[in-house]
């Protein structure tokens, strides 16, 4: 027995030390738990296996996954979709952990001096952390709930920020600024909270759809703006880069290096923009897949015996319009792998 315990402890230590150094590692899983890779392939979320950027962890009924990375430990509840992405802030790459649906408890490590903190949150709210413990929920209607148990968290949505201390929480409705913060003494059951969100959505599907549309429009506006800037910068950089050979021929190697160092910051800015565009696109796609798509799913089933109902028709008209805009804006940034 002691030997088994020793082996388990040793295994845990090895697994933990591996996770601290490299890609996020699955340290525990049970029930229906899988990882969807960047190409859409699915594998079992086996303990001791790594998870990579652009992968999505998914739990079903009774499923649970614990993930450890250099940024902290993440504990996924059942019926949750959790995405790992790459983002950047001021040219420094950072990991991004996004709850697309369901609930994830997060215990974040303190960021070393000069380090870049990871991006956390849901598809409708971003959380800035400082060595904290928090829970992020995302509901069937795209609403988010962030509850802090230790440390401090800044929750941002639509350009507005709310700072939460321990035992404080805030709810964020899609397309809107964070609501008023409140104090909590015990955790809210995700299933009940999500059921309420689902019922609210069912009562007013068109209203809920418009809120998700506002959130999606926010992403699309950012994508369009950044895309214009990216194209300008990358064109300028390519053009200047193509002149380097001529500069070397006429003015020598020194002049070539000098010019290259002058133009390279613009090239870097373009590559950061490319990362940002990709990040915003995947966030929008997650909202589209796990919230908008499921709204369609529930409404389609609710009205199965009455597709001539006015609410159903209004929902479908609005839904089609959102999808059309979404496809137009994102189609050049989404690849087959994302589906």
């Amino acid at each position: 027995m002691r030997r088994t315990a020793a082996v388990l402890i040793l295994a845990t230590v090895i697994v933990s030390s591996l996770a601290a150094q490299s890609n996020p590692l699955i340290i525990y899983s049970e029930g229906e738990a899988l990882v969807q890779d960047a190409k859409g392939g699915r594998r079992s979320a086996a303990i001791g296996t790594f998870v990579y950027v652009d992968e999505t962890l998914i739990t079903g009924r009774g499923g649970r996954i614990q993930l450890q990375s250099r940024d902290g430990v993440f504990d996924m509840s059942e019926n949750t979709a959790f995405k790992l992405m790459q983002a950047q802030t001021k040219g420094k790459k950072q990991n991004a952990y996004v709850v697309a649906l369901g609930r994830v408890s997060m215990k974040m490590r303190k960021v070393a001096a000069g380090g870049t903190p990871p991006r956390l949150g849901s598809t409708t709210a971003a959380a800035g952390v400082k060595g904290t413990e928090l829970d992020v929920y995302e509901g069937a209607d795209g609403s988010s709930l962030i509850l802090v148990t230790e440390g401090e968290v800044e929750v941002e949505s639509q350009g507005k920020t709310v700072t939460l201390a321990a035992n404080e929480g805030v709810e964020v409705t899609p397309g809107r600024a964070p609501g008023a913060k409140y104090t909590f003494s015990e955790f809210i059951d995700y299933s009940k909270w999500n059921q309420n969100k689902l019922e609210e959505m069912m009562k007013d599907p068109v209203g809920s759809l418009k809120l998700v549309e506002a959130e999606l429009n926010g992403y699309m506006k950012k994508i369009e703006t950044m895309d214009v800037e990216y194209k300008e910068k990358i064109e300028w950089f390519k053009n200047e880069f193509s002149k380097l050979d001529e500069i070397e021929k006429t003015q020598g190697k020194e002049a070539r290096y000098k010019r290259y160092h002058e133009i390279s910051p613009i090239g870097n800015e373009a590559s950061y923009l490319a990362i940002d565009i990709r990040f915003q696109t995947i966030m929008a796609l997650s909202l589209r897949r796990f919230v908008l798509g499921r709204m369609y799913f529930f409404i389609k089933l609710k009205y199965i015996n009455n597709y001539s109902d006015k609410t159903y028709i209004a929902f479908m008209t609005e839904y089609r319009s959102i999808l059309q805009t979404f496809t137009t804006v994102t189609q050049s940034h989404v690849v087959d792998q994302d589906i």
Binding site: E32, L34, Q36, I58, T59, G60, R61, G63, E78, N79, A81, L101, R289, F290, G293, R294, Y296, F297, K300, L301, K302, I304, N305, I339
Partner: peptide
């Protein structure tokens, strides 16, 4: 489901249970 890709494991159960409930 129609043109929507449903990715969550639990949703298949919801689909068939709802269809049954709807007759």
């Amino acid at each position: 489901l129609d043109g929507e890709i449903i990715a969550l494991p639990g949703d298949a159960g919801i689909l068939w249970r709802n269809l049954k409930a709807a007759g």
